[in-house]
């Protein structure tokens, strides 16, 4: 039972990270029907920003909690700025182009950002400080719930609640939902669609940055390529849950995380990805739109 709980918690943690990234994919897709392949890179840039900020602050001798907060904030701001800029440079000019064009543009942006960080930083792995402290009160339970996992789970939960409130109860949230339903109609009714799209990119990027910082301080190392792998998995999770659906992305991420964890724990880590993708195929056979997605015919 304890082993099951350990695996369960490990899976949930992994799922939380996937969810933080997957939300960015699904929100962007929901609004402009674009798969933003550069999203994983935003996550990676978030982790790098936090690393640089934390290193500078550590030299200055700032308290650990302050480092954590400031590094996280810096990552969010910087990644959001990147998300905003990427949209303005790579996607906005292609808004009315055939749908394949922004997709290619996204892939190009992803490659560009990866190589930019590779050149500006290093190709080596860099050690990432563990920003999350060891909580003493967790000692008795630390067997199946580590402090970093607790922080990741709590942060993700808080972010989800915040996001739900934002979308359900604020003016910008309403505008986002309207744009997602029918962009032209929303525009006709006076919604500033460009601003809504920018906001969506900023929110998605902020979430990815949070995910990046949390996982980097959990596993303790980053390099320029981490965004690609995490991005692919998060994208899978978004498709699993139904791309375009926010609860779907979260559900899909948790299912993916748990599947991977249990597959490793009870079968073999050799088959981790096999199980994850077999599940994806199965779900798409029976529900082509994903678990909570609307099944519509799409061209891309």
């Amino acid at each position: 039972m304890e082993y099951f709980l350990e695996l369960f918690m490990g899976g949930l943690t992994r799922g939380s990270i996937y969810a933080l990234i997957a939300l960015g994919y699904t929100m962007v897709y929901g609004i402009i029907e674009l798969i933003n392949f550069a999203h994983g890179e935003i996550y990676m840039i978030g982790a790098f920003t936090a690393l640089i900020t934390a290193s500078v602050l550590a030299v200055m001798g700032v308290h650990q909690f302050a480092i954590m907060a400031i590094a996280m904030l810096a990552a969010i701001v910087y990644s959001s700025a990147y998300g905003f800029t990427v949209e303005k440079i790579a996607y906005k000019p292609l808004r009315h182009a055939p749908r394949l064009s922004p997709l290619i543009s996204a892939i190009g942006m992803s490659i560009f950002l990866q190589n930019y960080v590779l050149l500006a930083q290093t190709s080596d792995f860099l050690p990432f400080p563990s920003l999350i402290p060891d909580f003493k009160f967790l000692e008795p339970y630390s067997n199946y719930l580590r402090p970093t996992e607790l922080v990741i789970l709590l942060t993700t939960a808080v972010v989800m609640v915040f996001l739900t409130l934002l979308i359900k109860f604020t003016k910008i949230g309403k505008a986002m939902r309207a744009t997602a339903q029918d962009r032209t109609m929303a525009m006709l009714l006076g919604v500033n669609v460009n601003r809504v799209i920018s906001t969506t990119f900023v929110i998605g990027s902020a979430l990815a940055a949070i995910g990046g910082v949390l996982i980097a301080s959990h596993i303790g190392q980053i390099n320029f390529f981490i965004g690609f792998i995490a991005g692919i998995k998060a994208f899978t999770a978004a498709v699993l849950g139904g791309i375009g659906s926010i609860p779907g992305a979260v559900l899909g991420s948790f299912i993916l995380g748990l599947t991977e964890s249990f597959a490793t724990g009870y079968v073999s880590s050799d088959y981790e990805d096999v199980f994850a993708f077999a599940l994806l195929v199965l779900i798409l056979i029976f529900r082509p739109g994903g678990l909570l997605g609307k099944s519509t015919t799409q061209k891309v």
Binding site: Y3, E6, L7, G10, G11, T13, R14, I17, Y18, R146, E149, I215, H218, I219, F225, I226, I229, A230, K233, E260, S261, F262, T264, G265, S268, S269, D270, E272, D273
Partner: peptide
């Protein structure tokens, strides 16, 4: 005897298995 996936987000499941 197992293979782990290089670059995976984390290895907590493998580590738990090792422990067990």
């Amino acid at each position: 005897f197992e293979g782990i996936t290089p670059g995976a987000v984390d290895y907590s499941a493998v580590v738990n298995k090792l422990k067990r």
